[in-house]
Write a protein that binds this DNA or RNA. Sequence first.
DNA 1: AAACTTAATAGTAATCATTACTAGAAACTT
DNA 2: AAGTTTCTAGTAATGATTACTATTAAGTTT
Lengths: 151, 151
Amino acid sequence: MEKKTENKLGAIRLSPQRRLILEEVMGTKKHPTADVIYRNVKHKLPNISLGTVYRNLESLSENGYIQRIDTGTGPRRYDGDTRPHAHIRCTSCDSLEDLPEKNLLEKFLLRELKTDYYIQEVIIEIRGLCPECQQSDIPEDIRQNPLQVEP
Amino acid sequence: MEKKTENKLGAIRLSPQRRLILEEVMGTKKHPTADVIYRNVKHKLPNISLGTVYRNLESLSENGYIQRIDTGTGPRRYDGDTRPHAHIRCTSCDSLEDLPEKNLLEKFLLRELKTDYYIQEVIIEIRGLCPECQQSDIPEDIRQNPLQVEP
DNA sequence: AAACTTAATAGTAATCATTACTAGAAACTT
DNA sequence: AAGTTTCTAGTAATGATTACTATTAAGTTT
Ligand SMILES: [Mn+2]
Ligand SMILES: [Mn+2]
Ligand SMILES: [Zn+2]
Ligand SMILES: [Zn+2]
């Protein structure tokens, strides 16, 4: 007979650590890094180790509960939203947000794509300056030119 | 009066090392990593150091002669083609190729994009299995599902 | 419930890619 | 020729991630 336990998450166990990490990733739209998650989660579970955070981010994403974001520079980031969607990253403050346009992938890319690859994932990352960073920060002469579309 | 020297590349000098690295990146479509470039270039210039390779890949890309590819997993890759274009990566053998569709970015993405970011770069990476890896390699049960477009 | 088996953890060590540093060489400027 | 700047080889340091190890917790079988 099957044990009545609430501590199961599909194929894997839901330890307190794993639950907390999952909640942390699900509960923000900021696409945090392992390190950020570690620091936040440590408030509630002071003995948790960074290795545990990495291990669980790995198992959670392998089992489809969260998404790894392997784009761009800097440390890897994680996303509680597992639906395929594109991101926009600020090249100055390195913030990472969802693109407002949903289904960008399906709408444009996949239909047009002719390839003999067996396609598993489409990654789209836009890079630029967020509104805040446009104002204050970067001198014109070291600022990259914006991309233009010919009319 | 200005010295007549062939060893200039815009703002930077064209040392033998830098020239060789540039030729190496320009001369392949394989999007090599710093390490691969280092090994290849070492045949002609056995004393070159890995640090020199990194430093020059940096200066060459900063000055717009080559392109850094900061997408995906694993070590950074470089591209002699500086035009914006999308790539497709095999999740099994990790090969990285240009997508046959050119101007994918301009055609689809930029026109549709409504954002208050100052856009500098659009990165598109498709991931999947290359034709070779589809055949032999990966057991069905660990193979990711392909992406589908609803009709 | 006791014994067994498996999964998960904290803590730490190891690895890998990249960056930083340093002293010397080469190129350019005066 | 002397001075200034850029570049180099070699090596050290860093930062993110992965691997390892001994221990604990959970689940299973008897
Ligand atoms: Mn997201
Ligand atoms: Mn390319
Ligand atoms: Zn910003
Ligand atoms: Zn392949």
